[in-house]
């Protein structure tokens, strides 16, 4: 890759990423997001429940 090319193309372009790559990345993001939501909202260990207690109530996750 020439330096000239990267100077000419300062804007980032996810639109031109091919469909399969976008789908794979999107699935990875959904999995990561679901893990975060599950950890905050559903994980059973008592210390996690107690730390995230008020968040679970505010976000209306099933609790108690």
């Amino acid at each position: 890759m020439s330096t000239n090319q990267s100077i000419q193309a300062p804007s980032i372009d996810a639109v031109s990423v091919d469909r399969q790559t976008r789908a794979a990345v999107a699935i990875a993001m959904v999995v990561l997001g679901a893990v975060l939501v599950w950890g905050v909202g559903f994980a059973h260990p008592a210390f996690i429940h107690n730390a995230a207690h008020d968040t679970r109530h505010a976000l209306t996750y099933p609790c108690h």
Binding site: M29, G33, L36
Partner: peptide
């Protein structure tokens, strides 16, 4: 701890929205 848990859950929601944007371009 509530602020931390809120930020993590909101990050999770944001990731799911961004996945949708990525598919829809």
């Amino acid at each position: 701890y509530t602020l931390l848990a809120n930020a993590l859950a909101a990050t999770g929601y944001a990731l799911i929205l961004l996945a949708g944007f990525t598919i829809r371009r």
